[in-house]
Amino acid sequence: MNDFLTFAMNVVALGLPLVLAALGGLVSERSGIMNIALEGKLLGAACATSLVAASTGSPILGLGAGLLTATILSLGLVWLTQSLRIDHVVAGMAINLISLGGTNFAAKALIDQNQLSGAPTLAKEMYWGLGVLAAVVIIVGFARTRPGLHLFAVGEDPHKSRQMGLSPIRVRVGALLTTGILCGLGGALILTNAGGFTDGMTAGRGFIALAAVILAGWRPGAAVAAALAFGAIEALRIQLQGAPVFGVEIPTEAWASLPYIATLIALTGFLGKTSPPAGLGRI
């Protein structure tokens, strides 16, 4: 029983950053902006949280910096794709590169590593509460509120939405603002879980979150479930420590690849056909 409790706690701890990032990705993609830059936002947020918390000694300022960084990167994606009309994939990839390079730079150039690992952080339980709240708000908001309907409509067809008096750009700015905040929380939580910043510490979690969005067919409830499932896989991997399952030794890399393999299988459509928002990525 005790084992199970540890496992459950691990699932929440490992799954929640994925839930937050997946919800962020979902809101963005539902508005029509393809978001392969979740990884960059998580990493940027984790780095900024750590830097500011370490240098000011205030975990709240740290979290604020994390939220701000992720939001700037997120709104940057709106600017790049909507005002400069850069391809969504190109813009997202560039943001990832800039974030990866920038955090490497900032962490190495500004502060020595010891100080970074000693950054004060807020209680994990606070993030857990915020994560649950975000999930509920988004699931309910999608189904039952005006912004939810507008988000869906703009992602499907911005042109027709404009004809119906909506402002697609306003909807998208709102959506990506939400994405920024969620990714900021996710990044700060990853940092809190780890205790200190290390180069490239998000280790592909932004891509796992994206995988959860796709696996879930762009539906919020399913995205939360998929993100938690991926968290469970990770927890299982840690718990097993490479120990054999039913007599078969499964390398830790195979466990880590499972979310990606599941997503590839989902893309074949054999598990049931889901379709992305019709206007996704089309300026």
């Binding site: 790049l80 400069l84 009309r85 850069i86 391809d87 190109v90 813009a91 990839m93 560039a94 943001i95 990832n96 590169l97 800039i98 990866l100 390079g101 920038g102 955090t103 490497n104 730079f105 900032a106 962490a107 190495k108 150039a109 089309r282 300026i283």
Partner: peptide, 27 residues
């Protein structure tokens, strides 16, 4: 730190991306 190359590279890609769409056809 070598992270600088990521900053330059990402920026370069954005500039090229923005120029390409500028000369591209209508949407």
């Amino acid at each position: 730190p070598k992270g600088l190359s990521g900053l330059i590279l990402g920026g370069l890609i954005l500039i090229v991306g923005s120029l390409r769409t500028k000369t591209g056809g209508s949407d």
